[in-house]
Amino acid sequence: MRVFSLAARRLAASLPTLLLILVGMFLLLQLAPGDTVDALLAQMGGGDAGVARDLRVFYGLDLSLPAQLGNYLWRLVRLDLGFSAIYGKPVATVILERLPATLSLMGASLSLAFCAGMGLGVIAARHVNRWPDTLISTLGLIFYATPSFWFGLMAIVLFSVQLQWLPAGGFGDVAMGYTGWRRALDIAWHLVLPTLTLGLIFLAIYLRIMRASMLEVLSLDFVRTARAKGLREGRIVTRHVLRNALLPMVTLIGLQAGTMLGGAVVVESVFALPGLGRLAYESVVQRDLNTLLGIVFVSALLVIAVNFAVDLLYARLDPRIGA
C-alpha cells in the first residue's frame, strides 16, 4: 500500500511534465518550415493554392495557434494522435505497428545491460585493483567509447558477412512465414546483434555504477558490523551489500530510459528494424510532423511508464522510502 500510494503520487507528479513536453513540442514544430499540407502536396507531386487552402481547413491548420494547441491537446486526451499524411493511416495505427520491435529491443538491451553490468560490477568490486577489475574496467571504458552504430556495422561485417552466423537486419524473416514459437525464436535470433549494439554502452555505464556502488557500500558501517558478527565475505556480499548497492542501479534505469529510446533510433536504422526510432527518423526526413509529434507523445509515455515501474521497484527494495 505504501509502495503503491508513493508510486501513484509520483505518477501524478509526472502529468505536468508531460503537458510541458507536449506544449513545448507543439510550439517548437510550429517553427518548422512547412507544415503537414506542404509535406502532403510534395508527396502528391504538387497542387494548386486552392487545394492547399482546402486541406489546411480540413486539418484545422487555418485556426489561431492557441486554438490549434487546444484542439491538439483535446485530441490527445481522447488518444487521437491525428492522421499521417505520409503513411495514409492514423498516426496511432502507424505507431502501434512499430511499437513491438522497439519494446523488444529495449527490453532485451536493458536486461542485458543490467544483468551483465551488475555481474561484472560485482566481480570488479570484489577484486578491486587486481587483474579482473583492471580487465573489466578497461573493457567497460572501451564499450563506453564505442559509437553504437559503428559497433553495429562492424558486427554485421564480422558476424553476418564474414562468418554468416547471424542475420544482418530485419525484424524476423517474413519470407519464411513462421508462426507461433518459431516466429518468436526467429525474431529473437534477429535481435541478437541489435541488442548487443544498443546494450553495450549501457552495460558499460551499469558496470561502472555497480562497481562504484559496491565499493561505497563495502565501506559503510553496517558492513563492518557484519564482519564483527563473524560473517564470511561471500555472505556479507550476498546478504548485506548487494541489495544496498542495487539502489543506484535501479535509479539509473529510470534516468536512462529516455537515452535508451534515443539510442534505438540509430540502432533500428542500422539493422533496418521496423521500430519507433526508425519511424522517427523517417518522419524527420519526410517532414511528417504529425507522426513526429505522436512519437514524442508515445516516447514520453513510455519513459514515464518505465519510471513508474522503477519507483515501484525502488520502494520495494528500500523500506525507508515514503516512511
Binding site: L18, I21, G258, T259, V265, S299, A300, N307
Partner: peptide, 8 residues
Amino acid sequence: FQTLPNFL
C-alpha cells in the same frame, strides 16, 4: 527534457 529521449 529528461523524459524526452534526447536523440529524438
